[in-house]
């Protein structure tokens, strides 16, 4: 076995997928280590969101391998099965249950039984409640726990959704554009939050905001036309001529 594979939380190998002849991913390969924080950048249409769709089971690849946690093949499973394995996903547009309170949003996300049967006849344990309180303080929404999620500001919704991922206690978090529409202060706060949760969880962040990516102080992968263009430290990647040509601009 490949050494990379056994150490990895996510192992993507030669994945291709096309929609109506358009190659969204073209022989894409990259590896994320356990507990690693990774930023993914790239121009629009580079395949960032498609990559997340493949990993979370929303889209099936035409060919290639996606291995989770060193041994689990993700390409044959659907979204809820993959979520149950320990992969959480934050959407590009913040998606929370607007008609329910902040606390209820987190209660729905907390790891635990997910079957329809248990939801009808099951009881909620005390552990769950503690976990929700802990998450509330991590995302700093403790004072707003009884507010309807729909009444939160855009940035607060982003945090709530990240909190919902944390409550799932996943091994891997996929976070799509977490700071879109945030103020500078909120962006800084989010960088701190994501850096603090890495280590315990592996975190993959897709983002356009380069100062935010810089603040994450992690390995960066730049995608272009469905495959990896460059990979390395933020300084190395942003000094790469091809990255400058296709993405950053001169």
């Amino acid at each position: 076995m490949n050494l990379d594979l056994t150490d990895s939380i996510l192992y993507v190998d030669a994945v291709s997928v096309s929609f109506d002849g358009f190659k969204a991913l073209n022989d894409l390969s990259f590896v994320v280590g356990r507990g690693e924080l990774r930023a993914i950048i790239g121009p629009n249409g580079a395949g960032k969101t498609t990559m997340m769709d493949i990993v979370t089971g929303k889209t099936r690849p035409d060919n290639g391998m996606v291995i989770f946690d060193g041994s689990i093949d993700l390409t044959t499973r659907d979204e809820s099965a993959i979520a149950a394995l320990g992969i959480g996903r934050k959407f590009q547009k913040p998606t929370v249950f607007e008609g329910q309170t902040v606390e209820d949003n987190l209660l729905l996300a907390v790891e635990g039984p997910r079957s329809a049967w248990s939801s009808l006849f099951g009881w909620r344990s005390r552990v769950t409640v503690d976990q929700v309180l802990e998450t509330l303080s991590t995302i700093r929404l403790g004072d707003l726990k009884h507010r309807l999620a729909g009444s939160l500001s855009h940035g607060q919704k982003q945090w709530l959704e990240i909190g919902m991922l944390l409550a799932q206690n996943p091994k891997l978090l996929l976070v799509d554009e977490p700071v879109a529409g945030m103020t500078d202060a909120e962006t800084e706060e989010t960088a701190r939050l994501l850096t603090s949760i890495a280590g315990e969880h592996a975190v993959v962040v897709v983002e356009h905001d380069m100062s935010f990516v810089r603040a994450l102080q992690c390995k960066v992968t730049c995608l272009h036309e469905g495959s990896v263009l460059a990979e390395g430290s933020i300084d190395a990647v942003s000094a790469n001529d091809r990255v400058i040509d296709v993405y950053l601009g001169r």
Partner: peptide
């Protein structure tokens, strides 16, 4: 509560593992 979640944000509910 989960029915309402499905009604309001089906894919979110799915990605939470339901």
């Amino acid at each position: 509560q989960i029915l309402a979640s499905i009604r309001d944000a089906e894919s979110r509910t799915r990605f939470l593992g339901y």
